[in-house]
Write a protein that binds this DNA or RNA. Structure first.
Length: 822
RNA sequence: GCCGGAGUGGCGGAAUUGGUAGACGCGCACGACUCAAAAUCGUGUGCCGCAAGGCGUUGAGGGUUCGAUUCCCUCCUCCGGCACCA
């Protein structure tokens, strides 16, 4: 009867049975109670699945299994974010085509993923690098183009000298390349952008309905950077030039003494044309431009500037303002021109450096400090400072005065309120090979034309050289150019850039829904019987309506301001275009924590990477994933320990031993039944909250009790096996079979519990005297306050402390403790 | 600099509408089995004590309370994010 416990054998056995029974395949059209459980799909790298993948996928799968046992129709798909730089860099090094290496990596990863034993629906795989997939990436571009969201413009853009490509703002967050860490430089290039800025407000407003970590929403808010202020319309003295100036602290508007303009601003040459200032100013502009090209622009570097010889005619009668070109002014925020006062730290420092006069509009209450501020010896701006001008806000604090002054400015017609965002349009062009070609061709005059949908997929050419020349590799494809001329005519040229891979991942959650029945081939719709094409629909509207938004999305927090913003934007756009019915893609979002080793982030260079393979070989997938979940709270991550996993190994062996040797009870004692119901209650709640660590601890505790009892009844064992179902799926099946049960564990109902049975008949009550624990008494569950307190006073040790004392206060916390104060 | 989050045994961590701090596991010590080791099992594991029991304790200091890891104030440390946005 006793069976040898060999995890690798039983895991292979159940994986085979699951696959044969197709129990994880979901009929999207028939689902009644859909639950879409999604993890951020992996990049198919040549390295194997690492611990980070496991830490994301395995607990996510446990949660999905739990939902399935709770009766939901759960879709848990898996796919590959397969375009991108690593495959291309590998091709440069090895000569192996990215398509070849990617396909082989995908194959390897599928094999590894299957060993995890997750309930992936392998009939709906997506791979973003296949023509069947990127055909829709290109379709998405065409829709964006058609609806005027995609546009091309010459702009100063972030360029990574190492990756030899431009990057989106989001991918250059701290002035370095998101991929390789190289310092970003600025380049002026004609590139394709998507107008994500048009959605800035909706991206902010949408947060209200999302069950996301507050931290993530906050990061997106900061990134979008909404700022409300005043736009002033101003005129340049002696010239027929007008411009707008954005001011987010309009409190100072009467104390402004000079104006600064960004070096890249197109008005700069006009301001100085034909004057003696032209030469030095344009030289200054060129010097700053070169500086930005050569290196990452340093924040802490001192501001530089030069006077243009021009003045703004000040409409408030407070004197004309000299216009300076200034290195710290950003060309693409606000209007690129700013009016300055003494109450902005940088303006203050700049004016001091160049001897520009300043006026004071705000004074501190402290008279000593006020004297210093008046003499412009120190910079000052505090919320409780007192406003000196304008008259209408006199005496108000900096904070209070804001609204009053804005109202005043609008009333007087000096300016209008205006909202600005820090968010910039999404630069989606990349000068790389391994991506989806942008479906645009240029006529002989250089005017762009969208490629008609019937020519999609617009295939990525094969005959290219993988060399980082700074030019798009597609430029070197003869076939690509021939193809273009053949289709569109002589002198026509294709767009040589490919799309940012974040475009591919911005809608993949919809593609799983469209991938039904096409397996690895990926999604497309066939022509209808009467020959009309249905291909203008990315995804079946009914399926989309039923399954979106994603019920639970799990992935790393590093995507807060990239993928998670792009995906929301694309979903909103698709809704506006009429292709989907929802506007938010991810209803609930959870970030798993980071797994470290020896206190540091795992990396090859540090040599502290933990390979899951050896541990899986030895302990099996169930033990490995349970250990990851047991380490600590899912959202916290943890530090990997080679020895810690042994505890879970023992736990699993002990369970197996119990089931094979100790199913010896007809009926369990009532104390065991009570513990069982408490365990069901706790495990249910813990998995709902993604507190896998404490769920496992509760099961361990229960096992300890069963062992102490010397055995277990079959009924209790059945429940125990079901509780293990989400956490250790293979083991649970094996136990289920050992109990002689039919069907798969995943098809059973999640055990329920009886609240009344979770309560024990006798309670242990702690007794405190003056807040210190002095004893413990056993009382009847139904006993009232008087009885319990009387009993507490009889406890010998408590008695000792009450001796000769007068009791001032008696407190009874029902079912927990008695506190006596003497 | 600004905005978040967190500090609990040798280690990972548990417990917060204020109610027995240290569940569960690792490690360690001793014991059993063994020629021996591994594995396994048992006992112990904040400090003092053979024990009954006592004392201490959740980064530091203070406060509220019968009672504080939990609430309030001050400070320290660590982690994450943003940072020329006028």
């Amino acid at each position: 009867m006793e069976r040898e416990f060999d995890p690798s054998k039983i895991e292979a056995k159940w994986q085979k049975k699951w696959e044969e029974a197709k129990i994880y395949e979901v009929d999207l059209k028939k689902a009644k109670d859909p639950y879409y459980a999604l993890v951020m799909f992996p990049y198919p790298s040549g390295d194997k699945l690492h611990v980070g993948h496991w830490y994301n996928f395995a607990p996510a799968d446990s949660f999905a299994r739990f939902m399935r046992m709770k009766g939901k129709d759960v879709l848990e798909p898996m796919g590959f974010d397969a375009f991108g730089l690593p495959a291309e860099n590998y091709a440069i090094k090895s000569g192996i085509h990215p398509d070849t290496s990617t396909r082989s990596n995908v194959q390897t990863m599928v094999k590894q993923l299957k060993r995890m034993g997750c309930m992936y629906d392998w009939s709906k795989v997506v791979n973003t690098s296949t023509p069947e997939y990127y055909r829709w990436t290109q379709w998405l571009f065409l829709q964006m183009y058609k609806h005027d969201i995609a546009y091309k413009k010459e702009a100063s853009v972030n360029f990574c000298p190492k990756c030899q490509t431009v990057l989106a703002n989001e991918q250059a967050q701290d002035g370095t390349c998101e991929r390789c860490g190289t310092a970003i430089v600025q380049k002026s290039l004609a590139q394709w952008f998507w107008k994500i800025t048009q959605y800035a407000q909706r991206l902010l407003d949408g947060h209200a309905h999302l069950d996301w970590p507050e931290k993530t929403k906050l990061m997106q808010e900061n990134w979008i950077g909404r700022s409300e202020g005043i736009n002033f319309r101003e005129h340049v003295k002696d010239l027929n030039i007008e411009f707008e100036v954005y001011d987010s602290i309009p409190q100072t508007f009467l104390a402004q003494t000079f104006t600064v303009i960004a070096p890249e601003h197109p008005l700069v040459p006009q301001l100085v044309a034909g004057t003696s200032y032209e030469k030095p100013v344009m030289e200054f502009v060129e010097r700053i431009r070169r500086k930005k090209l050569a290196e990452k622009f340093k924040i802490d570097e001192e501001a530089e500037g030069i006077f243009t010889g021009r003045f703004v005619e000040n409409p408030f009668g407070t004197g004309d303002l000299p216009i300076w070109v200034c290195s710290y002014v950003l060309a693409d925020y606000g209007t690129g021109i700013v009016n300055c006062s003494a109450h902005d730290e940088r303006d203050f420092a700049f004016a001091k450096k160049y001897g520009i006069p300043l006026k004071v509009a705000l004074l501190p209450k402290d008279p000593v400090l006020a004297e210093k501020v008046k003499k412009l010896e120190v910079f000052y701006r505090e919320p409780d400072g007192v406003i000196q001008t304008p008259e209408v806000a006199l005496g108000m604090t900096w904070e209070q005065s804001r609204k009053r002054i804005i109202d005043y400015i609008e009333q007087k017609g000096y300016g209008t309120t205006k909202v600005h965002y820090r968010l910039r349009d999404w630069l989606i062009s990349r000068q790389r090979y391994w991506g989806a070609p942008i479906p645009i061709v240029y006529d002989p005059e250089g005017k762009p034309h969208p490629i008609p949908e019937k020519h999609l997929p617009w295939l990525l050419p094969e005959d290219v050289e993988f060399k980082p020349t700074g030019k798009s590799p597609l430029t070197y494809s003869k076939e690509f150019i021939r193809r273009t001329e053949k289709l569109f005519g002589k002198g026509w040229t294709p767009e040589f850039d490919t799309m940012d891979t974040f475009v591919c991942s911005s809608y993949y959650y919809l593609m799983y829904l469209a991938a039904e029945g096409f397996g690895m081939q990926a999604p497309h719709f066939s022509e209808t019987a009467d020959g009309r094409s249905e291909r203008n629909h990315l995804v079946d509207p009914h399926v989309e309506h039923t399954w979106m938004p994603v019920s639970m999305y799990i992935g790393g927090p590093e995507h807060a301001c990239m993928h998670l913003i792009y995906a929301r934007f694309v979903m909103m756009a698709l809704k506006d275009f009429g292709f989907v019915s929802h506007e938010e893609p991810f209803k609930k979002l959870v970030h798993q924590g980071l797994i470290t080793h020896k206190g540091a982030k795992m990396s090859k260079s540090k040599g502290n990477v933990v390979s899951p393979d050896a541990f899986i070989e030895r302990h099996g997938s169930d033990v490995f994933r349970m250990y990851l979940m047991f380490m600590g709270p899912f959202t916290d991550g943890g530090d990997w320990s080679d020895t810690g996993i042994k505890g879970i190994g023992r736990f699993v062996k002990r369970i197996h031993a119990l089931f094979s040797e100790k199913l010896n009870k007809k009926v369990d004692q009532s104390s065991v039944i009570a513990a069982l119901h408490r365990t069901v209650k706790k495990v249910t709640k813990d998995i709902e909250d993604l507190h896998f660590n404490t769920a496992i601890a509760a099961l361990m505790e229960f096992l300890n009790l069963l062992e102490a009892e010397g055995g277990v009844s079959k009924e209790t064992a059945k429940t125990f096996a079901l509780l293990l179902g989400p956490l250790a799926p293979h083991l649970a099946e094996e136990l289920w079979e050992m109990l002689g049960q039919k069907g798969f564990v995943i098809e059973q109902h999640w055990p329920s519990f009886d609240e009344a049975l979770t309560r024990a008949s006798t309670l242990m009550i702690a007794v405190q005297v003056n807040g210190k624990l002095r004893g413990e008494i056993a009382v009847d569950a139904g006993a009232g306050k008087e009885t319990v307190i009387a009993q507490a006073k009889e406890h010998p040790n408590v008695k000792k402390f009450l001796e000769g004392q007068k009791i001032k206060k008696e407190i009874y916390v029902t079912g927990k403790l008695v506190s006596l104060v003497v």
